[in-house]
Design a protein around this nucleic acid. Structure first.
Length: 838
DNA sequence: GACCTGCTGCGGCCTG
């Protein structure tokens, strides 16, 4: 007996033995009624089926073929192929006439040619590839049949320029089909109303929240001897034995580290401790070659691997069903990230995700308790769309000019229909038009910057084929410097390291990379040739990546935990474990809280220290420290050394300063915040670095052809040339202003800084004169030394501080930082600088 | 060229 072919979403689910969740029915109804919306649910909750079955039910005629009807955007290529598999089965059943296709940078030329003739009924693609479709001369004809767009992992795109690119593309598609449905899928997101408004361009839509019964289990791996757990340090290798025990007990696990360099070291340490795990554990981060990473990802999917040591390269929603357990070494920095990472485990039905936090120093014990509390309370970070980034707009203008041309008067309302450009001013619009037309006042003599021009009919187009080609090659908003490729002599590529790292190595010297010990043979162009090396002493590459500050949500939760502790409520294993440290802090000074601002002053051989603990994340502390330093120096000439971390800041003066007398409310004033901040920091330099990205997105700087990528140095040179030229000959260039704006509001988190100042003004100042550095002050001092001293001197220095501390604590060992740092900074952290040749 | 703990993501040309 043959069962009837399913024709409704629930029928299809039934063929799999599944019953629909209520939220899935809600989505089906909404789509059937022609509504757009945002679907928010944890990973593995069934979002894909909710939206896809709804789309098939509404748009597919089982008996007929269909032109391009559904666009499915994903932020990652690896997700695209996963998605293709997930969509194929229901489509075969519910819409046998439909075709499904994939279009990313990986798509081969045969498939591309096929798509050029005829696009599939549903196309899975990335924001960048969608923009490339918009740049086709026949874009309108090819895309006007689209009736629904699904944006997967919208939380990942919303807060950055890639998301703005998506906003612009959606506006374009809506222009061609005003009844277009848009659905966003998101997990781990704070402000859903904003996320929805940005996606729908201000139109209202349906907000659907999925199952929330999958709150992960969150626990902490506690140090065996809390009283000897270090006060500072980030690598945390002393937790290695405990971690190994956990891995032994679990099935497949992911071990997250915050930096690539740390991941390399942990992987190596695991292998040294458990040589029998060779081949069973693997390493995964963003600087490893694609092939290496693909192999690891396949191994995870097939359940071949016991553990993978990784960075946020494995954050996103690829479904690794065999993964049972996630461990996070070091601060997770935010609640959303915690849940995102936890969601990598327990993908199979009936299993609950579990994440174990592994602290690397004592304060992270408190952070772990705070993270669990905040996750339970659902205090997730919001992400906000950038406001009218003109570099993205300029790129989009050229894209649209290529995609059939535009008329300014009809394009402007379309652009303003996006959330990001809803307040685009007329003069900004005119500036952008002039910029694509002739590059602005300083570049009008150069034909390559006359990219777009109105034709006789008044349509703005790209007349030059060379400009068109370069533009297509440069589409996108992700800017990264080319690294030096690390490659075996026989050809196998391992990945990339930074130029500056390789430049300091000599041939014959060894370094640790891609989980192997390598000997540098020679460097040729942008390729470093290596062979496997023996021996033990090796440098570990460091990459210059981003710096994630502790989120406001997590920092606030941490202050709440400290208040618990101050009230004697040691109501979690983490707090009990941190009790020795907390009581020492309370005895020597006080515990920071939400209503007070703790200020500690200390006189040492180094000078006059001030420690403050606003708990606002390291970027804000950096801004705050330079602001305070600048304002103090204006009253009395003095210079400060500054040190910051996610919890607080230190100002150190070599000359006498009466801290209690100087800590006046006026220091925390709002007035003149920006000017003082710009003056206190080297803002010009920061802006110039920021401008590099803007120059590339706006198409000023060409990245070069693939395979012959320009070196970071070359690109840097050309972007700083533009920066200088604009400053001298075109100071009103809006891209310059954008660079400054991004430095202030994104890099330095200006908004959060202003909010922090406002809160600090309401807090009661509690001043403590210290005899010795407290557990909270100590990491700040260590961070400052680390910046100045080599690792050997650093260890000596810390040993001396420790001896002093131990004496102070009455001979009782309070901490073990020196031992931990000596352990954590083996042989050579970085290779010695190469001597300059005469 | 600075950073030292410091993430992630995509895309593309010419060869007849």
């Amino acid at each position: 007996m043959t069962r009837a072919r399913p024709t409704r979403p629930q029928d299809w689910l039934a063929t799999r033995g599944w019953r629909p969740f209520p939220f899935q029915r809600t989505v089906w109804r909404a789509v059937a009624e022609g509504e757009s919306g945002l679907l928010h649910a944890g990973t593995g909750a069934g979002k894909t089926h909710a939206v896809w079955l709804a789309a098939l039910a509404r748009f597919a005629d089982p008996a007929a073929a269909a032109p391009l009807t559904v666009l499915w955007l994903t932020p990652m290529r690896a997700l695209a192929s996963d998605t293709e598999r997930a969509l194929a089965e229901p489509m075969a059943a519910l819409a046998p006439g439909w075709t499904l296709g994939l279009r990313t940078g990986d798509t081969g030329s045969a498939e591309r040619a096929r798509q050029a003739r005829r696009l599939p009924s549903a196309l899975i693609t990335t924001p960048e590839s969608l923009s490339l479709l918009l740049a086709r001369a026949d874009a309108r004809a090819a895309l006007r049949s689209v009736r629904m767009v699904v944006v997967d992992e919208w939380h990942e795109l919303l807060g950055n320029k890639r998301g703005v690119q998506v906003q612009l593309a959606l506006a374009r598609l809506r222009q061609w089909n005003p009844t277009l449905l848009t659905w966003g899928l998101s997990a781990t997101l704070g402000d859903l109303a904003h996320a929805s408004a940005v996606l729908l361009g201000g139109a209202t839509g349906r907000l659907v929240e999925g199952r929330s019964d999958r709150l992960p289990q969150i626990d902490t791996l506690l140090p065996a001897r809390p009283e000897r757990f270090p006060w500072a340090g980030h690598l945390g290798l002393r937790m290695l034995p405990a971690l190994i025990t956990e891995l032994e007990a679990a099935g497949s696990s992911l071990v997250f580290l915050n930096t690539r360099s740390q991941a390399e070291r942990w992987y190596q340490a695991l292998l040294e401790a458990r040589p029998d795990w060779a081949g069973l554990i693997a390493l995964h981060h963003g600087s490893l070659d694609r092939e290496v990473r693909d192999w690891v990802e396949q191994g995870l999917k097939q359940g071949r691997l016991k553990a993978v040591v990784c960075t946020s390269s494995l954050d996103l929603g690829v479904d690794f069903s065999p993964v049972e357990r996630v461990l996070q070494i070091g601060s997770v920095k935010g609640v959303a990230r915690l849940l995102q990472r936890a969601g990598r485990a327990g993908h199979a039905p009936g299993r609950r995700p579990r994440i174990t936090l592994v602290p690397t120093h004592s304060l992270e014990l408190i952070e772990a308790a705070a993270a669990r509390q905040a996750a339970k309370a659902g205090q997730l970070e919001a992400r906000r769309s950038p406001e009218k980034p003109l570099d993205v707009l300029v790129q989009h203008l050229v894209t649209v000019a290529l995609g059939g041309g535009f008329r300014p008067e009809t394009l402007l309302p379309e652009i303003r229909s996006t959330w990001a450009y809803r307040e685009l001013a007329d003069d900004e619009w005119q500036w952008a038009l002039a910029f694509v037309r002739q590059g602005g006042p300083s570049l009008h003599a150069y034909p390559e910057y006359r990219r777009v021009a109105p034709d006789d009919a008044g349509d703005w187009r790209v007349p030059d084929a060379q400009v068109a080609r370069r533009h297509r090659m440069g589409i996108g908003t992700i800017v990264s410097d080319a690294g030096v490729t690390v490659q075996f002599l026989r050809g196998g590529r391992l990945g990339t390291v930074e130029e500056s790292f390789i430049a300091r190595l000599r041939p014959g010297e060894a370094f640790l990379f891609a989980g192997r010990l390598l000997e540098l043979v020679r460097v040729h162009g942008m390729v470093a040739y290596v062979r496997l090396a023996g021996g033990a002493r090796a440098a570990v590459p460091r990459w210059n990546g981003g710096r994630m500050p502790l989120s406001t949500e997590l920092a606030d939760a941490m202050l709440a935990q400290l208040e618990h502790a101050a009230a004697g409520q040691l109501d979690s294993p983490e707090l009990r474990c941190a009790a020795p440290l907390l009581s020492l802090q309370a005895a020597w000074s006080a515990l920071p809280g939400r209503d007070t601002l703790l200020a500690e002053s200390l006189r040492s051989r180094e000078g006059w220290h001030l420690f403050l603990y606003p708990f606002a994340g390291r970027q804000v502390h950096l801004g705050l420290a330079s602001l305070l330093g600048w304002r103090l120096a204006r009253q009395q000439p003095v210079t400060f050394s500054i040190s910051v971390n996610d919890y607080g800041l230190e100002l150190l003066s070599a000359t006498a300063i009466d801290w209690p007398a100087r800590l006046q409310p006026a220091l925390f004033d709002d007035a003149g915040l920006l000017q003082d901040l710009l003056a206190g920091l080297n803002a010009g330099e920061l802006a110039q670095r920021r401008f590099r990205e803007i120059a590339r997105i706006s198409g000023l700087v060409f990245n070069g052809y693939p395979g012959a990528a320009k070196s970071a140095r070359q690109l840097q040179a050309s972007s700083s040339l533009f920066y200088e030229v604009f400053r001298q000959h075109d100071p009103d260039n809006r891209l310059l202003a954008q660079a400054e704006h991004e430095v202030l509001w994104q890099e330095l988190e200006g908004q959060r800084l202003a909010e922090t100042l406002a809160t600090l003004r309401t807090r009661r100042l509690v001043h403590q004169a210290l005899k010795r550095p407290t557990p909270f002050a100590f990491p700040l001092m260590v961070a400052r030394f680390r910046e100045r001293l080599g690792s050997e001197k650093l260890a000596e220095r810390i040993a001396r501080m420790l001896a002093e501390l131990e004496r102070a604590a009455g001979g009782e060992a309070t901490t073990d930082v020196a031992a931990s740092l000596a352990f954590e900074q083996p042989a050579a952290v970085a290779p010695p600088r190469r001597r300059r040749r005469p």
